[in-house]
């Protein structure tokens, strides 16, 4: 077995195991149980191996997996949002699994010579990363809201993030995600107008879908910042945004088809 294959396997196995172990954080306990700590450890191992894998393979799927993993780890340190890993770990695992079925050789940033396309793919990956993170935060927010509304206080873990933390983290994440998605759209347009005009008709569904996703996130931010939408509504809209994004993600996997084969 090749080294890169071994690293891929380590990464995939770590995230698969971390998916179930990090979810132990929802259990009410003051001290993190051994399983939970093991889950965090595996998540970090998975993050490191996914990074090595992404650098070696240059695959967009692996790059997305590594970016989501790093964004999750950063959110642990910045906002103490360890539980968001319970959502991102399975997403990363699914991304890595899906990359096995979608030929990774078709989507290598390293094979692309066009700068605007490279920026487009890179910013799309970062944008999607933050949209995934926002979805995880939204789920946490809605779960907390549900538990407090139903007065199930004893179901809430002691270290569950508070409303203000989740609201702040969600807002920042949405803004970063939206900024990168915007850059991705702009650079995509530059690339398309720069000698790829003949391919545009074949890319219509993908372009339309990308614009739809961008408009949706724009709506979320406008309604939040101008119409003072409550965080509950913002969280629900972020979930829908993630679903829209998940559809366009399959388009991202085939991004390599735009570049030289």
């Amino acid at each position: 077995m090749e080294n890169s294959a071994i690293i891929s396997m380590i990464s995939l196995t770590s995230f698969l195991l971390a998916s179930s172990l990090v979810a132990l954080g929802f259990k009410q306990s003051f001290r993190p149980a051994f399983g939970l700590r093991l889950g965090y450890f595996l998540f970090v191992i998975g993050t490191l191996s996914a990074t090595v894998d992404a650098v070696q393979s240059g695959s967009t799927a692996h790059l997305l997996a590594a970016a989501v993993a790093w964004a999750t780890v950063i959110s642990w340190f910045v906002w103490r949002l360890e539980l968001v890993g319970a959502f991102t770990a399975p997403v990363i695992a699914i991304t890595l699994l899906a990359s096995i079925f979608f030929s990774p050789t078709r989507a290598r940033i390293g094979n692309i010579n066009d700068t605007s396309l490279q920026i487009h793919i890179f910013s799309a990956v970062i944008g999607q990363t933050f949209a995934i993170l926002a979805c995880g935060m939204s789920l946490l927010f809605l779960w907390l809201d549900k538990k407090l509304k139903s007065k199930a206080l004893n179901d809430l873990p002691t270290r569950f993030p508070a409303f203000t933390t989740l609201t702040k983290a969600l807002t920042i994440t949405l803004w970063i995600g939206f900024t990168f998605i915007s850059i991705s759209l702009l650079t995509g347009a530059v690339f398309a107008l720069n000698g790829q005009l003949e391919n545009i008709p074949t890319m219509y569904p993908k372009i339309l879908w990308a614009i739809l996703v961008w408009v949706w996130y724009l709506c979320i931010l406008v309604l939040k910042e101008i119409r003072d939408y409550r965080p509950q509504k913002v969280a629900r809209m972020s979930l829908i945004g993630f679903v829209l994004l998940a559809v366009s993600w399959f388009g991202l996997l085939s991004a390599g088809s735009w570049g030289p084969q």
Binding site: R80, L144, L148, L153, L156, A162, F163, T164, T165
Partner: peptide, 12 residues
Amino acid sequence: DLARRASPDLSK
């Protein structure tokens, strides 16, 4: 203590 669900920092 329940107020910590609103904000972890009660001083805010």
